[in-house]
Design a protein around this nucleic acid. Structure first.
Lengths: 337, 337
DNA sequence: TTCGTTATTGGGAACATTCCCGAAAATTGG
DNA sequence: CCAATTTTCGGGAATGTTCCCAATAACGAA
């Protein structure tokens, strides 16, 4: 049973109209008689007519689809950002194609090709920890397809970005630890390829400086965010001659992992060593002791990113804005500090 | 600067060929001279030609896209299933459109329309807690678009399904609690509209019966999975004249929430009351005490679902199979029991 | 040389729509 | 009642491909 899709031509024939008229009636074009329109609409309803978006997109060169490329689904961060983005995209009539890269640069490039082939009207992207070359993303810019970065942004591209004030968040977190009397604060930093790592690191450094604490490079460990390594680094820190009395982690999963390791060693959090994370993931309120962390307005990140993208899409290529929207963080103080 | 998309006609003109020949060369059709093909391929490369999938899909009536509809992104469950599904779909050359419904029936129906409009080749779906009417999904069946359910399946449709043995998992969990000497085990059940709730409930009942424990209806609370209600129900249970000494929750978020409430009341887990969940979410290993739970092969669920769907797509409508794939669960014993 | 074959290629319909342009019909004003 | 509009509609090109059917060229064989 080959099912023939109902087309405007079917409707046209049945009503003795031309496809042009049916098209106009369906799209709400003003120059069509009210009765005719009514008849078309009714028949369309009756035949369960569905407009063929493929054909429409082919002509209009617009798919009403945006792509979202995220590096991972490990924590609750990206799923939540996506929810925010989908919410405003959906309201604006855009569909969403989501790609998750498993933190792999190659997958990111491949996903990028998928988006291109699918002719998305624009993309939202947060890069993987491996991404150092941005040619695959610059293609979009060259082709006139809007792109908006969020969270993990690309510094060498002049496009809109949605970030939080990582520097300030880190600064406040470390400052808080110092106020609480901590003297030796270690930092489990992310890879230097990511701007967020750098910013959080410099916030950390600034807080120390402000409090006249000398920077001890031994206490700064930059790693690639693969969770299995956390154990090694935390143990390394605890084995130092003068171990830290606090750890500021680049993100919550790292902080959570660190707490596990510390507890396993028989040390107490926060008595022996305080831990602070970044992001306020779902899990951070659950772990024992609950994690002090710098909370990001996750959903809002997704919303503003999508909004910016949609504005960009409707705008003309010539006057793309390179807005950088910086959202506020909030220090959530819990038991781990 | 209006950017003219490079088409096969551009290539054809430049090489003094017809678009037919170029098309054949590009698609690897055998009946085209080796030199011609080479020339076409090279020029295509040089011009950065990209096939227009819209046009191709319009003709072939195949978009190479599958849709995934999930009820929520709250826990790590669905993101992980999606990762599994995307993995096998991607390898088979399929793109993925993901929709998340916020547990809203209406959003699900809307998302369903999106999928239809986008002409997906098939969909993977797990219904919302509100879904009781399945007309919006039956449409796919009628239109000859394959559909595969996973996790939260629809009982009244004869299509492939991927589930775990919920009955068995619940049975083993409750049985374990009984072996540990618990006498009054409460069950925080999910809404009866979901098959998984029912199955887990009956596994619970079976385990009690098997151990000659009389069923106490007061200990069974069926709720709608909205987290804020857990507090009320757990408190209600603890206020009973003969409060339970264990709680078996329909899923991990519920169990985790229950633990929080119990702890807040000053009771100890598991000494005063044991808690067991279902799914082995990311958070369940982190909470204190760590949660005993029935683990599901999450990624595998996504993989098999996608596999089943793709088989269905390539198959002819006439001989669709209605396979039900039941995966195994595993009882993960941690500190909460 | 001529005919039958095979290897290549071209032409054009089809896919479902939109949109521009012109034509027919209806309405209005004087 | 006729010209001038305005309203309403149809025709056909265009979107970028695929695919079927011919047509042309080349190449042997008779």
């Amino acid at each position: 049973m080959k099912r023939h899709q109902v087309t405007i031509i079917d409707i046209a024939k049945e009503l003795n109209l031309s496809k042009s008229t049916v098209s106009r009636a369906l799209t709400g074009h003003p120059s069509v008689n009210a009765v005719t329109r009514q008849a078309v609409l009714e028949l369309a309803e009756k035949l369960d007519y569905q407009r063929n978006m493929l054909a429409i997109s082919l002509i209009t060169k617009k798919t009403n689809t945006i792509g979202i490329i995220v590096p991972e689904f490990y924590s609750s961060f990206f799923p939540n950002v996506i929810m925010g983005a989908q919410e405003v995209a959906g309201k604006a009539g855009y569909n969403t194609v989501i790609c998750q890269c498993n933190e792999s640069y190659e997958t990111e490039v491949a996903n990028t090709k998928v988006m291109l082939a699918n002719q998305v009207d624009g993309i939202l992207v947060s890069i993987t920890k491996e991404t150092r070359n941005f040619d695959h993303l610059k293609i979009f810019h060259r082709k006139g397809i809007p792109i908006v970065f969020f969270n993990r942004v690309c510094d060498e591209m002049d496009v809109p970005k949605v970030i939080v004030d990582d520097y300030d968040g880190a600064y406040r977190a470390v400052n808080y630890l110092l106020e609480k009397g901590r003297k030796r604060i270690a930092h489990l930093a992310g890879p230097s390829s990511l701007k967020i790592s750098e910013k959080r690191l410099s916030g950390y450094k600034a807080a120390l400086k402000r409090n006249n604490i000398e920077l001890d490079e031994d206490l700064i460990i930059s790693y690639d965010l693969s969770m299995d390594k956390v154990k090694i680094y935390v143990n390394h820190l605890l084995n130092l001659e003068r171990p830290p009395d606090a750890i500021f982690a680049v993100n919550d999963p790292t902080a959570i992992e660190a707490i596990q390791v510390i507890k396993k060693r028989g040390l107490r959090v926060p008595e022996d060593i305080a831990v602070v994370g970044f992001s306020n993931d779902y899990a951070s309120g659950l772990i024992e002791p609950s994690l002090t962390t710098v909370s990001q307005p996750v959903k809002e990140i997704g919303q503003t990113a999508a909004q910016l993208l949609i504005e960009q899409i409707s705008r003309d290529v010539s006057d793309w804005k390179t807005i950088i929207r910086v959202l506020k963080t909030e220090l959530i103080i819990r038991k781990s500090s």
